[in-house]
Design a protein around this nucleic acid. Structure first.
Lengths: 208, 208, 208, 208
DNA sequence: TATGAATGAGCGTTCATTCAT
DNA sequence: CATGAATGAACGCTCATTCAT
């Protein structure tokens, strides 16, 4: 029962955060959304920041699980017999999918990037978010590079950072402008990386 | 004298904004930074938002000018005899340079992205920022594509969106983590796009 | 305890309002008068207007109760055996009394009339005040008219409006000028209405 | 030319005052309405109060002139051969007329009554307004009383105060509620006073 | 006379946080 | 665990007034 209450508050915070944004969300708003007294949130969380960090982490979970499930043993090296290019293609498809499925998460994400710029606690949560997600990209990148005839000049990390950046830069454009065609941009990114990986241009063939 | 004061306030707003962030910057902070009475900022700007939009625009100017000067007649098509690949390479170098030269501008930028998510006036300024900067990338992209033996599947706009996204996704990582090696990421991006443009991998050879 | 505080704030608001007037009374003044923190008044009342409407209603209560008690079953028709003229005479005496007993209420009242001219929330409270009080006059008027040999040309409502107006026009003169002889004016009004009701001039014989 | 400017400012103040009310009208509003610089109003009037007193006086002029013209030699005693009852009837008609013709003036008036409660300068202007207008009523009352077979118990001043009060109490009801039937109330007042003056009920016969 | 920039006190309101119950 | 009253600092904004030009 007690932890259920804590969960209710975190969920309420996430919903309020997505709806209103960090600075427009008050502790009272969250308490009202959770259906508890205004003081209770401070029983579970010392400060507003602490609660919101928990809410961010909670909000990231489903998207992270999607990558984990897609990657199977992504945490270790890719399986010996796996096709790295297939993984890469799948990664881009997953990106297109998560942008649609978790649009609200990315609204929250870019809000938190802004907040984190001047708020160390949020900054730390944001950095964890970046690191974890970039790790997925790096894992796939590693596999792809291993399969390349001529290894690239750039390091795995640099390439992963570039691709992670592109993906989130595309998410950003979508979040700031709903009529932006994110799928086309991701397909373009896919086409470019595939050309890079194979040494020649080759159209990306979307799975879906 | 009058316009000097207005300028002083805008500059002070920019500095305060970069230092403290949108929500941590009060009108009184700005007035104090500008050395004027608290009420004066409201004489020149109806609302805090209006002032900050002006500050953002002011902050973007030098970076925009750098692109314009680099692009020569970038507003029209690239010159007949220009080498599009050289333009592209120069674009990436410019990106590396502006991230160092105007680091504070990008701090402000990502702050404003967050603010714009729930603030229409700022959102509009943010969209203008994105559109204008993406247009530079599109101009170069156009030239590069025109020179490709086999045209890409993706449209110019999609490719430009992808590259703009990558650049700003890289800036984001740098801004959130000063020890991030943005140059390496941009070089990786350059390498990938060059491979894509030429049909074979070719190391990017940084100008600087 | 909680409601006691709310009451304290309302009472403080009433006192501050009478002393300083609507526009010269700040929420901080009221909080100080009540001995509470500046923010607390907003815990109980969303806006200044809401608090002041409550204060006005609070201030009106004793005066309203005086009329209700004097009128016995004033809400229904006058009792069969009651002397309507006695009721009328009593009404004028009550008017003289309330002007002395609740002088501060009428200061507040005329302040609110002014505020209500350009403030819908206050206007609504003001109209309620007028309507309720005019209803008392109408009740008595009704009884008097019923007893007249020859019914007047004017309607009950018009007469009540005229008498209510006279009373409050007299209050106004008193409030604006403390040396104004309101009793004499009310006696004159009484004399006129009695002459009108009985068909011949007859000196009003004050009860007190 | 200079005085024209002062006049423009006074007129602008009157219009702004009627439209927005005393406390919602700023010096800047007035200056804008007059088409002059914000500082200029303070050249002609030391304070906001001073300007608004001038505006009130300006606004009263036409209504006062109407009474003066109607009363002919109203400043002295009524003419020997005049019919005082005709004067009285005309007074009530004039009241009905001025409420329609100068509705805005009475909006301003009741606003100023409220302001004057806590503002000595305005209070003084308000008292002058009351005194001057009550004098007209007293003049007519005097004539009517002189013609009565049996003089009333109440003094001329008390009766005039009562009638002035009734008129302005009726105006008040009209101003606070535009659907209020002020004509009917004034007719009722007329009927009552006529009954009082003649010793028997007699329907008021409106001139117009 | 006239301008309009500049001042600075003050306003209504918000809100993270505390704490007695 | 949970409530919700209470605090007090801070915020964006307004405005009468002043004054150099």
């Amino acid at each position: 029962m007690p932890d259920q209450t804590k969960d209710r508050i975190i969920d309420a915070a996430y919903r309020a955060l997505v709806r209103q944004g960090y600075h427009e969300t008050s502790m009272k708003d969250i308490a009202a959304e959770a259906g508890v007294a205004p003081g209770l949130a401070h029983y579970y969380f010392e400060t507003k920041e602490d609660l919101l960090v928990a809410a961010i982490e909670r909000g990231c979970e489903p998207a992270m699980r999607a990558w984990e499930q897609a990657g199977l043993n992504l945490m270790g090296p890719l399986p010996e017999d796996a096709d790295p290019m297939a993984f890469a293609r799948m990664g881009f498809e997953l990106a297109k999918h998560e942008l649609k499925a978790y649009a609200e998460l990315f609204v929250l994400t870019f809000d938190m990037f802004g907040v984190g710029l001047h708020n160390p606690k949020i900054a730390s949560a944001v950095r964890t978010f970046i690191d974890e997600r970039r790790a997925f990209v790096a894992r796939i990148t590693q596999g792809v590079i291993a399969g390349m005839a001529e290894p690239p000049v750039a390091s795995v990390d640099a390439i992963a950072a570039s691709i992670w950046g592109s993906l989130h830069g595309i998410y950003l454009q979508k979040v700031m402008n709903p009529s932006f065609d994110a799928d086309a941009a991701i397909d373009a990114l896919s086409e470019m990386t595939m050309a890079f990986a194979t040494g020649r241009r080759q159209p990306s063939s979307p799975v879906s």
